[in-house]
Amino acid sequence: MESTIVKSVNYNAYFGDNHVVKDVNIEIPRNTTIAVMGPSGCGKTTFLRGINRMHELIPGATAKGQILLNGEDVMEMHPIFVRLKIGMVFQRPNPFPNLSIYDNVIAGYKLNGIKLPKAERDNIVQHSLTRVALWNEVKDSLTKKGSFLSGGQQQRLCIARAVAMEPEVLLFDEPTSALDPISTSTVEELFHELKKNYTLIIVTHNMQQAARVSDRTAFFYMGELVEFDDTKTMFTNPKDIRTQNYITGRFS
């Protein structure tokens, strides 16, 4: 019933000599929502950034192994293709401060030099903003700069920006950790909406959040993928002692 969309084979990531992600093998089915958990510094962000090749933007960062997107190794593809197919939302909202809200949503087209007729652009903007439940809030101020919005609104704007490109996979790195509880729940509702059409991979420190939104959970520890299972199983009946400890709060 489900096909694999992202698969990593012996994926390793390094910062210089620092071996941060170790031999990760994971298969992520299409249209599922994955939560990635683990203690701070265990390599979640690094792994996530490896998937769309953002990792290598950091000077001195290298990677080994394979990340397969629809069976194709992203390491052999040009990063531009990879990133067009795999969108990303960051921990801190980062709308383009020089662009209006409208242009922020359409940024992936506009800044990539893809010309669209006005009607189509309007359509994309409205559609994307509606998907992230922001349309009603900003429809009268589309020409204002994106940085005037509140933090939660900015984050949803960033999600809209990623959604507008219609990627196949969306990566989220602790998308709600910089947000207040109300914005957080808005974004979580959004995940439920998005998961119908996209594969979501969400790094989160919040176990409740993982339980609420994800189908499956991956647990990382010290750079290794310790366990990857149905979220329910994972939280009720973890197999690995390290997962158990983490879930029961026995790690710092």
């Binding site: 893809i114 010309k115 669209l116 189509e120 359509n123 994309i124 559609h127 219609e166 059409n197």
Partner: peptide, 24 residues
């Protein structure tokens, strides 16, 4: 050429209401 590229990238399905299935 450019325009047809754009069509592919743009959510024409929004209008047709066919959802996002075309990606599959």
């Amino acid at each position: 050429m450019e325009t047809s590229v754009d069509k592919e990238l743009s959510p024409a399905r929004v209008k047709t209401g066919a959802g996002f299935s075309s990606k599959k």
